[in-house]
Simulated assay, not measured.
Amino acid sequence: MTARRPGGARLVVLPAGHRDDGPSRAGFAALLAAVLGDPRCGGAARRAAVAGWITRHRLTARTSEFAYWAPDPAGPRTAFDDLRQARLPAGAAGRSILDDLRARQGAAVDRHGAPPLAMLNHLVERAARSEPLTDPGGTRETLAAITVADLNDAIETLVPRARVHHDHPGTEVEDEDGNGADQASATHWRGALEIALQPECDARVAVRLPVRTPEPGLLPLLVELLGNGPNGRLHRALRHRHHLAYGFTASCWQDAGSSSIGATATVAPQDAATALRVLAHTLRTLADGAGPDETRLAHSRHRAEHLNALDGPFGTVDDLRRRAVGEPTVRQHLSALARFDEIPGLAFLPHPPAAAAVGPFTPEHRDQLARAYQEIR
């Protein structure tokens, strides 16, 4: 599946994510990642900056992943040992770096300068959850309580427990039996409308619907059916049929205990309520599945997206991680979906949608959004 390529990559996966923080330490995992990714703290970040490596970090609910790629395959071989050496400096220098990282993370939590789409995604996540939504970045109060010693102690105890995945030129991900664990139906779904005012920008709206978890891998194919570009259902509905939007996205979520699918649109503020209705209706058309022509287009876009990712600097090492943790590899995933000549219908759960809107809304616009939400419930 993967061609011989130059360079080499290492993926270091720490076994703790933002949901391991606890309420009093919210934001700890994100702040620790900032320390480990700052060249001022030495370690792999400094080596990567000096050597010109490509780096990537992903913070998930239960893991913190650091990826390193270098044109010389031997380069990242020391990444794990380097990461273990990172530390905030002692004394005033360490406190100064920590103050800087706290300030950056606090500004992001407050959404200062956050793109409207990032704000929208945060709002629709809050609208979807029945339990209080804790920002992975924590709060200014919880961040202020984290000390240099706390973070350096975490590096000493957590990084040695990391799992390391690596590739090299010509690495081939061999398929093994078994798929990732199936997800349960939504058990912590809230369903609500969240609105945030943001002046001097277009309006953005989102709708997310809970679903009975379909066969493994089918939700991403349904996202391609909606389409993040031309030839998808969102483009036809929002642009051609209703003349509302040029910008739109589709996404799916599969967390422990819940699955959902959603879409966003960028519109004029006066069109936000109408766009909310159109998004909900378009999502619910997935209950009817898709015929052969739409299915072929969705397969083509889905396959291209996966193969492009596999050709990236971390494509092979990401696939090796999937195999190691029991998730389907790209080959397994595409093979499993190839059997669908027609996409089966999606089963929606009888819960209210999660909806969100960000923009320069007047009181009238907000009333219109509230009425539209009641209609799509």
Rank of each mutant, 00 (worst) to 15 (best):
A3Q: 13
A3K: 09
R4K: 02
R4W: 03
R4D: 07
H18S: 14
H18E: 11
H18I: 05
D20L: 03
F28L: 14
F28T: 01
A34K: 06
G37N: 12
D38G: 07
R40S: 04
G43I: 11
R47Y: 07
A48N: 12
V50H: 10
V50I: 15
I54Q: 15
R56H: 14
T60D: 14
S64M: 10
F66I: 06
A67R: 12
A70Y: 02
P71K: 11
D72T: 09
A74K: 04
P76Y: 13
R77I: 09
A79G: 08
D82Q: 14
L83S: 05
A86W: 05
R87Y: 00
A92Y: 01
A92P: 06
A93V: 12
R95T: 13
I97L: 10
A107N: 11
A107E: 13
A108I: 10
H112T: 13
H112L: 14
H112G: 01
A114P: 06
P116C: 12
A118K: 06
L120I: 05
N121P: 01
N121Y: 15
H122N: 07
V124Q: 04
E125P: 01
E125L: 10
P132K: 08
L133Q: 10
T139L: 04
R140E: 02
I146V: 14
A149E: 15
L151V: 03
I155H: 00
E156C: 02
T157L: 07
T157N: 05
V159N: 00
A162S: 15
R163P: 00
V164E: 02
V164D: 04
V164T: 14
V164K: 08
D167Q: 00
E172F: 05
V173Y: 00
N179R: 11
G180A: 13
D182W: 03
A184P: 03
S185M: 06
A186P: 04
T187V: 08
G191Q: 07
A206S: 15
P210W: 06
V211R: 03
V211D: 00
P216I: 09
L219R: 07
L219K: 01
L219Q: 11
E224W: 08
L225K: 11
L226H: 12
N231H: 07
G232V: 08
R233K: 13
A237N: 03
R239L: 04
A245N: 04
Y246H: 09
T249E: 15
S259G: 05
S259L: 05
S260Q: 09
A263E: 12
V267D: 00
V267C: 02
P269N: 04
R277H: 09
R277S: 04
R277E: 14
A280I: 08
T282Y: 05
R284W: 09
D288L: 12
D288G: 13
A298C: 11
R301F: 15
E305S: 15
G312R: 08
T316I: 15
V317T: 11
D318C: 07
V325A: 04
A338E: 15
A338H: 13
R339C: 09
R339P: 02
D341I: 06
H351F: 09
P352T: 02
F361Q: 00
P363D: 03
Q368V: 03
A370D: 08
A372F: 08
Q374A: 13
E375D: 15
